[in-house]
């Protein structure tokens, strides 16, 4: 099990998750997350060698749909929910950097 979570770790995951934290929040969240992760450490004590992970408690495979067109939404309805629209498109502030 990894070392305890640090404020640097929290700042990093906040950035990955696009959350902005104040200094106070950073300190508080670090303490709280550390407590939860400390508790979660008990999973470490279980011997899981050879145990297959369960992603899903569901024995389904090959759920497929036919390639048949169904109605799309009305554009006006869709765009009515958008914070900003231009030229029938969703407008966003300028993009810096790469789409990855």
């Amino acid at each position: 099990m990894p070392r305890s979570i640090t404020t640097d770790d929290v700042a990093h995951v906040a950035r990955l998750a696009r959350l902005q934290l104040s200094q106070e929040e950073l300190t508080r969240f670090t303490q709280q997350l550390a407590a939860v992760l400390d508790h979660a450490r008990d999973v470490e004590s279980l011997d899981t060698t050879g145990v297959v992970p369960t992603a899903h408690a569901l024995p389904l495979v090959n759920v497929l749909r036919d390639d048949v067109v169904t109605p799309s939404l009305d554009r006006a309805t869709v765009l009515a929910e958008a914070p900003e629209v231009e030229d029938h498109r969703f407008r966003v502030p300028k993009i810096l950097g790469d789409s990855q």
Partner: peptide, 16 residues
Amino acid sequence: CGCRNSFGEEPNTNVC
């Protein structure tokens, strides 16, 4: 989804 896979249509018309 069942939206049409089609190039060159009016923006945001093939969405659900």
